[in-house]
Every structure is written in structure tokens, then in C-alpha cells.
Design a protein around this nucleic acid. Structure first.
Lengths: 204, 204
DNA sequence: AGAGATTTTAAACAATTGTTTAAAACAAAA
DNA sequence: TTTTGTTTTAAACAATTGTTTAAAATCTCT
């Protein structure tokens, strides 16, 4: 029992790493097996097929990715602090898992027809009350009148893109890995200042 | 002579479409051949190998992608108008070629070791004088003091991400293709307002 | 220790991959 | 028309793919 779940878990961990880095089409079952320290047959013994293993990984990663945002909305702080915290959380999450947005988006488009969709997030977002809270803040003149989808898109773009386009940005601005990581720390504050300035009405 | 370049061109066009949509690992030589209305042998007859054809496409697409930004900087308008125009151009370009950023970034990371890099862009950016113009505007108190790399990143993130993460955004906000396209038209103005408000000091 | 189940291994499978070959079809020039 | 070079086709190649098989090894439980 300890041995079996050991191997199964090793394969899952290896598959997650390899799938995220190279995508479904960019890797082979044997590569995953080797990364897990086993052979191909065991991959299919535990997960039936490359595709079934992929779906398992994809769903958990997508959920992890989306939930890392949503739970901020449920905390008991002001809307402005929520946006602030959301940016912090996103940068923190993406510093640890920088390839996840590209992975999720790539595989979403590869499976355009098939329906491996995360269902719970939209309803969870609804239940958080963020919708009503935004409308309230806009009615009170605290927040700029903007649909929630635009707000979400602004936050996601400014948080995710620096990690998604890391190589492109490094090349365009001639930055080493270390320089870019250091740059991101300051850049996060830029993003915060810009977003909060724009989204919320300053009263002086 | 008219027949040969006809077939060669058909293959190039098909390859560009297929590579951009599915990536190098996501498609086969035979798929490209079929898309071009020919057979596999002709693909290698004209381009020697799948990889050589890919490099050809990748380089031209990357150049097209990067040059679509740079040339705005050379025009004879104020810096604020340049940013404004840049956002317009980017949204226009990306509306026509929404998959190009993902393609370029994906293949950049797949070829991390190999060096298929666009050289001319950095020097062209230098020659445009945008560097000095930015410093000047910042010295004059017109523009917020921010390194050029952060400015470029802000513009790219807010322009590219809406197209790169289209499927994700649609699902998160429950929008159809048409609704999302319509949303982008208004969203562009949001991006412009936010960027210009943040980057330039308002004097009233 | 031994029966019964589970896990691991090595080998094989058919299908698909990128690439090459050799002959056919075609075009251009004499 | 015949010759020469180019383009196209169909078939084959070896390597790699996802997947399966069947035997070996290991574990579980009495």
C-alpha cells in the first residue's frame, strides 16, 4: 500500500512537472516515466492512458490556478484592500508557478472542442459577494464605474503577463534571469499603484 | 517557374497557419502538406525538413510581431500620442493575429537553448530615440519617472493579454465569441485611459 | 512458509512520425 | 520530337509514438 501509492504519486508529480513545462503534445509517456524513475508500462498501469493522466493533471492545475485568485474575495477587508491583496497573491503564486498560465491557456485552446472545463469557479465567484460589493462601491463613488469583467481582466493581465512573457521581456530589455526577477519585485508596486489609482476615485 | 513558386508559397502559407495555431510539436508535416493541398514529400523537397520550414516561419512571424510595435516610436508626434497610437496599433494587429503572442512565447521557451533570436529589434528601438525622449519627458515633469522596460511591459501586458487569455477570460466571465470581441472594443479605451493617466502627470 | 493478489519489468504491437528514394509527369529548349 | 532539367507522386525507411501483453518480482495475509 505504501509502495503502490508511492509510485503512483511519483508519476503524478513527474507528469505535472513535464506537462506544465512542455504541454501535452510536447512530451511523451516515456519522458514522464523516466522523470518519475519508472517505465512506460507503469504510467498506463496506474492511469490507463497518457490522455487520462493529462486530464487529471490539467484539472487539478486549473483549479489550483483559479482558486488562488478567488479566495481573496471572501476575506473581510475593504474592496481596495482586496485588489491590493489579490495582486500580492497573484505575484506570489506566479513566482512559484510561472508556467501555469501558459499551460492552462495552451491546453484550453488545444481542447477547444472537448469540454474539460472548471465549473465551480464562476459560482464560487458569485457566492463571494464580490459582484454586489463592486456595485455598492461604484454607487458610493469610491470605485470607477467599470464592469467586473474589465476589472478582472486588468488585474489578470498585469499580474500574469510579466510571467507569461518573461523570455520575451528579457530579450526585449536585455535582462538576465536575476535582473528580471529583481525587476519584478519593483514592477509589482508599479502595477498596484496604477491599478488602484485607476480603479478607485481619489478624494483629497 | 510560376508553378514552383506557387507550390512553395502554398506550403509556406499553410505552414504559417498551422504552426501558429498548433505549435511545432502540435502538428505534423503531413498536416501542413494536406493544408497546402500537396503531399509530405513536397514539403521536404522545398524546405529540406519540418524544422527548417519552422525556423523560416518563426523568424518572419517574430519579426512581424515585434516590428508592429517599434515603428510607432519613429513617428513625429508627442510621447503621449505615441503611447496612444501604440495601443491602437497593438489592438489592431492582435485583432488580426490573436495567436501570435502565444506562438512566439511558446516557441521561445521550446527553443530556450537554441538561439533563434530576433537581433534587429533592440538596435532599432535604440535608433528610434524613444530612450532619450522618455528621459526628456520625465525630466520635464510630463511623464512619471519609470524605467522604459516597465513602460514597455505595461503596454504589452495590457494589449497582449486580452488576446492571449481570450478563452480563459471568456470562460471566467461567461462571454461568447461575439460578446468578447465587442467587449474588447470598449476595453481598449479602458486600457488607454489607465495607461495614459498613470504614465503622464496631469496638470490642471 | 505458501497461496493469492498486486506491482514491476521487458518485450512486443500497430500506428504515426520525419525523412528519403525512385520513378513518373511535366516543362522548356534544341 | 527528342533531350534535358524540374516538379510531383507514391512508396518505403527507420525511429518514435501510445498502448498492451505476459511473465517475473514483490507484497499481503493466514
Amino acid at each position: 500500500m505504501s509502495k503502490d501509492s508511492h509510485t503512483e504519486e511519483k508519476i503524478k508529480i513527474a507528469a505535472k512537472r513535464v506537462f506544465i513545462q512542455k504541454g501535452f503534445s510536447g512530451c511523451t509517456s516515456r519522458e514522464i516515466a523516466k522523470e518519475a524513475g519508472t517505465n512506460v508500462a507503469l504510467v498506463n498501469y496506474y492511469f490507463r492512458s497518457k490522455n487520462q493522466l493529462f486530464v487529471l493533471i490539467y484539472q487539478s492545475v486549473t483549479e489550483e490556478f483559479l482558486l488562488s485568485m478567488v479566495d481573496v474575495f471572501s476575506s473581510n477587508i475593504t474592496l481596495k484592500e482586496k485588489i491590493n491583496k489579490l495582486v500580492d497573491r497573484e505575484f506570489e503564486f506566479l513566482a512559484k508557478h510561472p508556467e501555469i498560465p501558459m499551460f492552462v491557456i495552451n491546453e484550453m485552446s488545444r481542447n477547444k472542442n472537448a469540454g474539460i472545463e472548471p465549473q465551480g469557479i464562476l459560482s464560487q465567484l458569485g457566492r463571494s459577494g464580490i459582484f454586489e460589493e463592486t456595485l455598492e462601491a461604484q454607487k458610493n463613488g469610491i470605485m470607477r464605474k467599470l464592469d467586473l469583467s474589465s476589472i478582472i481582466m486588468l488585474v489578470m493581465a498585469n499580474c500574469q503577463h510579466p510571467f507569461m512573457a518573461r523570455l520575451l521581456n528579457q530579450q526585449l530589455n536585455n535582462l538576465s534571469d536575476e535582473e528580471y526577477s529583481a525587476h519584478l519585485v519593483k514592477y509589482k508596486e508599479v502595477v498596484k499603484e496604477m491599478l488602484l489609482n485607476y480603479l478607485f476615485i481619489q478624494k483629497d
